[in-house]
Simulated scan of single mutants.
Amino acid sequence: MSPNDITSHPYPAPDGILIGHLTPGTAAWEEARTGLTITATEIAAVVGLSPWMSRFSLWHKKAGLPTPPFEMNPAVEWGNRLEDAVADKWQDEHPGQLAAPAGTWRHRNRKWQRATPDRLIYPQPGADFDVAEKAQALLEVKTSPFGDDWGPTGSDTIPIHYRCQVMWQMDTLGLHRTHIAVLISGHDYREYTVDYDEAEARTLRDAAEWFLHDVRNGVRPDIDGDTATYQTIRVQPDGLEDRDIEIPFGLVCRWDDAYEAHREASDRLTQVRSEVLDLIGNGRRAICEGRRIAYRTVRDGHTHSLNPYTSKDAA
C-alpha cells in the first residue's frame, strides 16, 4: 500500500477532528487557518518564539488587518520539494510503520485549536493488522541549512519553535509522541523524538486563549524589535497625505541614539569582516581553536560573500 492511499483507507482517526486533506494555498486551506484560530505554525509566535512572525504581526493577521504578503524564498521552496524525500527516508528506516498524509485537524472541544501535521504514523498493514488500531504518533519533516539548535540524533533536542509546533499538534490530535526527521545541510539526516508534556501544552493553550482574548478586545501587542513587526506596520497606511505628524521628544532621542549606534556598529562590522576576509585569502573557512567562524563563497574566482556560522558547534 502506498502512503498516499491512506486517505481512502478506513483507518480510525486520532482523538481530534479531521477538517480535511486540504491543498496548501487553496481557499479552503486558507479558510481553515484564518479567523480566530491558532495553528501549530502560529503558536510559537503567540509565545514570542517564532523566527518568522512576531506576536504583533500575528495579532494583525487574526484581527483581519493588513499583513505583508507571503513571499516564497529558496529555503521554503526546497523545504517543500524535499519533504517527501525526507519522509521516504524515515519510512525506509522504519519498515514496520506507515507514515501517511495527515490532513488538517482541530481539537475535539476547542474548535479554534488547529494543526496540520506532515504525517500520521500507523502500524504497517499486514496479516495481523488491526484496522481498529489508531494512529500511533506524528511525523514532522524538516530541512535546515545548519545544525544550529539541533541536538544529536535520537535525542529530543530540537529548535524551540519546532518544539512548540509539535507539542501543539499532539495536543490538538490527542497523540503523545512525535518523530521528527530532519535533513541538515543537504546530507546530514537525523531523527528526534518528542513526547507529549501536559504542562507545556497547558502553557501554550493558556497563552493562545489570552492572545485570542486580546484580538477580540482590540488589545494590540506592544511594538517590538522584530522585523516582522516593522513589515506589518509598513503595510498599515493606505496612500500618502502631505502633512506633518508630531512625534514625542523621547522617541526622537531613541531614534537618534539608535541610528548613531547602528552607524558605529556597521563600521566595526565592516572592519572586522575585512580583517577576517584578508586572513582567509584563498581559503574557504575561518576557524579558531576548532570552532568555525565564517565561510567564503566564490564566483568567477573572486569572493562573492563572507558568511558567519550561526552557532559555535556548526558543522
Results as ranks from 00 to 15, higher is better:
83 E>I: 09
19 I>K: 02
249 F>M: 07
107 H>M: 07
32 A>D: 04
102 A>L: 09
69 P>I: 00
69 P>E: 11
57 S>H: 06
142 K>M: 09
35 G>H: 06
38 I>T: 00
176 H>S: 11
77 E>F: 06
196 Y>H: 14
39 T>P: 02
289 E>W: 08
144 S>Y: 01
88 D>C: 02
174 G>M: 05
301 G>N: 07
314 A>Q: 10
132 A>Y: 11
287 I>R: 15
80 N>I: 13
260 E>H: 09
245 I>S: 07
61 K>L: 14
226 D>W: 10
247 I>C: 07
12 P>H: 11
26 T>P: 09
160 I>S: 14
71 E>K: 14
191 E>K: 01
108 R>H: 10
274 S>C: 03
184 I>V: 13
154 G>L: 04
167 M>A: 13
222 D>N: 12
3 P>Y: 06
292 R>L: 11
196 Y>P: 06
285 R>E: 15
214 D>R: 09
123 P>T: 13
102 A>R: 00
303 T>K: 08
112 W>A: 01
226 D>P: 04
55 R>I: 01
102 A>T: 05
300 D>G: 01
237 P>V: 06
58 L>P: 02
71 E>M: 10
36 L>V: 01
42 E>K: 00
105 W>F: 10
105 W>A: 00
285 R>V: 13
127 A>D: 13
236 Q>L: 15
171 D>H: 06
244 D>S: 12
4 N>D: 15
61 K>W: 09
198 E>F: 04
49 L>M: 13
244 D>W: 12
278 D>M: 08
138 L>T: 03
70 F>Q: 12
181 A>K: 00
10 P>I: 11
75 A>V: 11
289 E>L: 08
251 L>R: 08
266 S>C: 08
142 K>R: 06
315 A>R: 10
19 I>Q: 04
23 T>I: 14
81 R>C: 07
5 D>G: 08
22 L>K: 05
171 D>E: 14
233 I>M: 15
266 S>R: 13
277 L>E: 15
62 K>P: 06
175 L>P: 02
151 G>Q: 04
49 L>F: 05
123 P>H: 14
262 H>W: 11
257 D>R: 12
238 D>V: 11
